[in-house]
Design a protein around this nucleic acid. Structure first.
Length: 905
RNA sequence: GGGUUUAUAGCUCAGUUGGUUAGAGCGUUCGGUUCACAUCCGAAAGGUCAGAGGUUCAAAUCCUCUUAAACCCACCA
């Protein structure tokens, strides 16, 4: 047997263990030895962006997903966790542009599309490799043979197919509308990609011309060059007489007509109560303009500079310069009434932080409000994609954990506008549309999977990265050899891996519920007529120790790889998962991971003790015979923790499972049974059975812990004489452990009870002592207490444990406690006698009466619950049994109380 | 403006359909430790479960209001 070091050193073993796992092939479900009727379990890894390295967000998602994957694999399911990476169009392109500018002082235009794309692809490839290495470092048991990338040929095929299908159904259209334009990225953004930042701004109040009847207020005077109307609230009496009138004005760049229209949403109390309508540069104004059939003047161009429509004096100026110039002109003309300081919620690009310029542009949109009927699709019967996406969650085809996010999801969908999917960036999936005579009157358009024959020019734009991510759960499962399939439908339906669809769980952070989860639901229900996943588990975000978001500018970014280097992967994983609840943000800091490391080392030392103490190391898989009360006790506790852990993991309560396991491992096994085992092994008759129990408990414990801390458990497992990796062992079953032993009832009543009794005695003494401190009337008993307390201190407790250990369960009757336990018992009795003399009988009577009331009420409610047929049917057996046990307990308590009450009388 | 969440020990957080005396980790104090583990062991101190009211035999848990904080959506002309 090899020597076991005193402390667990993760650095020395982790990489080798990962290699062993990977080489075993068990990450691939095809290689698992499964029962014929084995259910499947699948997770699609949310693909990390190929923009650099892993961060804590990735680390936490990998920890959760690996936990579920390993648990289900141990449960004997056909388990697939499919890894991959995302090209992350805008994010990656922006990053490479930045590097290019810093290193070579060049822009993408200096390089040209082809050369630039080559650079981006090189960067993405490099970045992908790094990420894959880091995903391995986290211990992720994902199937690398199925790894995918959003720009893979196969995935690109699905993307084109999706576009064409949606186009054919009339859900995708090209239109000239107001879009969110980022002048820095030179591209459109979807509504979700716009963020807001509060900034100081100036509110200018001015008149369009001297003879214009009233003033308007704005923070963006330069856009007013494109105004075509003024909107007022229809209830506003001040402006009633002007409604419908048209005024001709001249802002220094020619004649302009301003119509006075009404609009409900105009706030009469803001500014002058009159809103200058700029249809081309505000989404709301655009909608007002559409209602009133107003013309549209585009005064700001895609480059963020003023257009010729703004007038000769302004054309080519930046927005800021145009503003200064126009403000100066207004003042010169005496039109400016006042300038005030105000706050403004500036819309900015979520990727580069530049100010967004809403402007009209010809783009591709997904229409969310168009009703369609699709053949062979159970969801789409004269429904909109928005309605279907709502329906599948409302009807619980898809369950979101925690549930409250379902509301958030509904709200988002209810407010959803058409989704702009074309982007003017180079890196991404090209839009599968080809033109002839583009932009001319006789323009021809072709939407299809391949370029048509002849002289066609492809649309130069690319698709929103979320358009391809939305297909992720199934585009990754489709056969790479798509050419072997006759039709697209055939490919979709008959790719062998589609057996893993819908994926069982979607695990991700709540921050991308809209960006991604919602899009997957929209696109999958449309294309497959099926849901993408059955359950969505949303984890919280990782914050620093002060609760702040991690950001580069704050310099508080925690690198998970640093923590792994310092404490080991297992320590990091257990730290991230324990002490949290679904959807709640958590904090990550050294001390927390240190706690994880300490636990991992504790487990290491527990096994080090067991492996070096037992006479013969071997795997004990079958429940061994018990010879002492302590043996029974530890096995009963093990059964309890098995059932708790299993139930918790099945109901996504990961933190609870870790807590239960930790409590069992540290408090029950290490602090009690291991100490008892030392004593038991001094008795030659008990050595063999004790060893077996130690090895049995250790074996089961390693399986239970494996999903949380895979490396250390596998490493310890390698010391047990097992032929197979821990990775593919069988999850212990509570029911099986109990089978044939007939111990189920016995354990609660006979085995655990005496031990609990002992714990209870210790507790009683402690409580009494606390009472004496505050209640001088009980002083009388202090001497007795202190006498007994001395005995109950550390040494006496060990004595008591020894007594329990010596107690042969076959000789319970004969065994006579000759030490502390009996003294303590007697002591407690004595105390109680003394206390009785001190109790106010009237008060005590009242107390007991009210308690009887309470217990009777409890019994009533329990009986009601057990009579409820639905509850008995639906609830798991263990829960019902627990309730029955409670009822029994309470009835006993009631009897006791009633007796007490009688004795008082 | 619409919505959601949070407030529990010094700190970070659990607490499952209401049910024994509200828990854990870290920290603090005291004591211990050669023989699995100082990455250890034993013990102690520390809580009006934000506040007020209500429902109930029973409330950290359910309802109403108040206070404080965070987040999401809309929008700021």
């Amino acid at each position: 047997m090899k020597e076991i070091p005193k402390a667990y050193n993760p650095k020395e073993v982790e990489d080798a263990i990962y290699k062993k796992w990977e080489e075993s092939g068990y990450f691939n479900p095809d290689n698992l030895k499964l029962a014929d009727n084995a259910d499947y379990f699948s997770i699609s890894m949310p693909p990390p962006n190929r923009t650099g390295t892993l961060h804590t967000g990735h680390a936490i998602m990998l920890a959760y997903q690996d936990l579920m994957t390993r648990f289900n694999r141990l449960m004997g399911k056909r388990t697939l966790w499919l890894p991959g990476t995302d090209h992350a169009a805008i994010a990656t392109q922006t990053k490479v542009e930045k590097i290019l500018l810093e290193k070579e002082k060049k822009t993408r235009h200096d390089l040209g599309k082809e050369k630039f794309l080559q650079k981006v692809n090189e960067y993405a490839e490099e970045s992908g490799k790094i990420i894959n290495q880091q995903v391995r470092k986290m211990g992720s048991s994902c199937d690398w043979s199925r790894e995918r990338y959003t720009l893979d040929e196969g995935l690109s095929q699905v993307v084109r197919y999706a576009f064409v299908k949606m186009y054919e159904a009339g859900l995708i259209e090209r239109d000239y509308r107001i879009v969110n334009w980022c002048p820095r990225c030179n591209s459109t953004l979807s509504d979700d990609e716009v963020e807001y930042k509060e900034v100081k701004a100036k509110l200018y109040t001015f008149k369009y011309s001297k003879d214009f009847p009233f003033a308007i207020a704005t923070t963006r005077p330069e856009t007013k060059l494109g105004d075509t109307a003024v909107a007022v609230n229809p209830k506003d009496k001040r402006y009633k007489k002007y409604i419908g009138k048209i005024y001709a004005i001249d802002l220094g760049h020619g004649q302009q007509e301003i119509k006075i229209v009404t609009e409900e949403s105009v706030d009469p109390d803001f500014g002058t109560g009159a809103l200058g309508v700029t249809p081309a540069h505000s989404i709301i104004d655009y909608e007002i303009a559409q209602k009133n059939k107003l013309p549209l003047i585009k005064v700001i161009g895609e480059d963020g500079k003023m257009t010729i429509e703004a007038g000769k004096d302004y054309a080519g100026l930046t927005v800021e310069k145009a503003r200064d110039k126009f403000v100066a002109w207004l003042e010169e003309q005496g039109l400016m009434e006042k300038v005030e300081d105000t706050k403004q919620n500036l819309s900015i690009c979520y990727r580069c932080g530049s100010a967004i310029e809403p402007l009209p542009s010809l783009q591709w949109f997904v229409r969310v409000n168009k009703k369609v009927t699709l053949k062979g699709n159970k969801f789409f019967k004269n429904k909109t994609i928005r309605e279907v996406a709502l329906q599948v969650v409302k009807e619980r085809n898809i369950k979101i954990i925690p549930e409250r996010f379902e509301k958030t999801y509904y709200q988002w969908l209810e407010n959803l506008r058409d989704w702009c999917i074309s982007r003017q960036i180079w890196f991404g999936h090209p839009i599968p549309v080809w033109y002839k005579n583009k932009g001319k009157k006789n323009e021809e358009i072709f939407v299809g999977l391949e370029k048509p024959k002849g002289d066609w020019e492809q649309d130069g734009d690319t698709l929103d990265t979320w358009f391809s991510s939305g297909l992720w759960t199934f585009s990754t499962l489709m056969d790479k050899n798509f050419s072997e399939y006759k039709t697209w439908e055939d490919w979709l339906k008959n790719s062998p891996d589609m057996q893993f669809h819908p994926t069982t769980v979607m695990e991700t952070g709540y921050d991308i519920l809209f960006f991604w989860v919602a899009r997957m639901i929209i696109q999958t229900t449309f294309l497959l007529g099926d849901i993408p996943f059955k359950t969505v588990y949303l984890h919280g975000l990782v914050r620093d120790e002060r609760g702040r978001k991690m950001s580069k500018s704050l310099g508080n970014v925690v690198d998970p790889l640093d923590l792994i280097e310092k404490f080991g992967t297992d320590a990091l994983r257990v730290a991230m998962i324990s002490g949290t609840a679904a959807g709640m943000d958590g904090r990550l800091y050294d001390e927390k991971v240190e706690g994880g490391r300490n636990f991992v080392n504790k487990l290491w030392n527990i096994s080090r003790y067991i492996l070096t103490s037992v006479n013969e190391v071997h795997l004990v898989e079958k429940r061994p015979e018990t010879k002492t009360l302590a043996d029974e006790w530890i096995l009963a506790k093990l059964d309890k923790v098995i059932s708790e852990t299993t139930m918790d993991l099945e109901s996504f309560n990961f933190s609870g499972a870790a807590d239960a396991l930790r409590e069992f491992t540290w408090s029950d096994l290490a602090d009690w049974y291991l100490e008892i085992s030392k004593l038991q092994r001094q008795n030659s008759k008990l050595v063999e059975s004790t060893d077996k129990i130690l090895l049995y408990v250790l074996g089961k414990l390693l399986i239970l812990w494996h999903p949380f801390i895979p490396f250390v458990t596998e490493e310890i497992w390698s010391n047990l004489e097992s032929k197979e990796l821990l990775l593919v062992q069988q999850w212990p079953s509570f029911a099986e452990a109990m089978e044939g032993t007939g111990l189920n009832d016995k354990i609660n009543n006979e085995i655990l009870y005496p031990f609990w009794k002992f714990e209870e005695i210790v507790m009683t003494i402690r409580n009494l002592r606390a009472d004496f401190k505050v209640d001088p009337a009980k002083k009388v008993a202090v001497s007795i207490i202190s006498k007994n307390l001395e005995k109950i201190k550390l040494d006496e407790q060990k004595e008591a444990i020894m007594f329990l250990a010596r107690l042969d369960k076959l000789e319970v009757e004969k065994a006579k406690p000759k030490n502390s336990v009996s003294h303590v018992l007697e002591g407690v009795g004595e105390i109680c006698l003394h206390l009785e003399g001190l109790v106010d009988i009237k008060k005590e009577k009242e107390r007991i009466e009210s308690e009887i009331d309470s217990v009777a009420g409890y019994i009533k409610s329990l009986e009601l619950k057990l009579k409820n047929k639905e509850f008995v049917k639906k609830a798991p057996k263990e829960v019902v049994e627990k309730e029955e046990f409670k009822l029994k307990e309470q009835k006993e308590k009631l009897e006791k109380l009633e007796e007490q009450l009688k004795s008082l009388k």
